[in-house]
Amino acid sequence: MKEFLNAASNWVVPLLLLGIPLYAIAVKKIKVYESFIEGAKEGFWIGVKIIPYLVAILVAIGMFRASGAMDLLIALLRPITSWVGFPPEALPIALLRPLSGSGTLGLISDVFQNFGPDSFVGRLVSVIEGSTETTFYVLAVYFGSIAVRKTRHALPASLLGDFTGIIAAFIICSLLF
C-alpha cells in the first residue's frame, strides 16, 4: 500500500505535465509554450503580493509560540479535555494545528518518538493532522493575494471545521482503534 501510494504520488505531476500539453497541442492545436509562459507570469506576481500578509500573520504566530502562551492555554484546557478522555499529549497538536503546519509536524514526531506511531495517541494525532488544515496560513495567503481585509465569516466557519475535525478524529479513533 505504502509503495503504491508513493509511486502514485510520484507519477501524478509528471503525467499532468506531459498529458495536458500533449492533449492541447494534438487535439486543440494550441501553442503550448506561449500559453505556459502567459500563465506562469501571473504566478510570479501573486507570490510577491502575499509577502506582507504572510509576514503579518507569521510574526504574530511566531511571537505567540515563543512566549510560551501556548503552555498556559494547554494548562487551562487540560481539566476539560482529560474529563472527556482526550489524551493530554495530543492537546498541543490540536491547538497548534490551525496556526503552524511545520510546528505541528514537529510535535507529531515527538509523539511518535515517545509513544510510537501505532499507539492510540500516535494514531489520533495522525488522523488530526490528516483531517485539519493550517487555517490561519490559508486565510492570510488567500485573502492577502487579493488584498481583502474584511474576511467576514471565513475565519469562524474555518475554525468550526477544524474543531469538528479534532472532535471527529477523537471519536473515530476511539471507535476504530
Partner: peptide, 17 residues
Amino acid sequence: IGAMALFLGLMRIAQDA
C-alpha cells in the same frame, strides 16, 4: 513563486485546451 509559475502555466494550457 516557483510552484505558482509552474502550476499556473500548466493551468493556462489546460484552460486554452
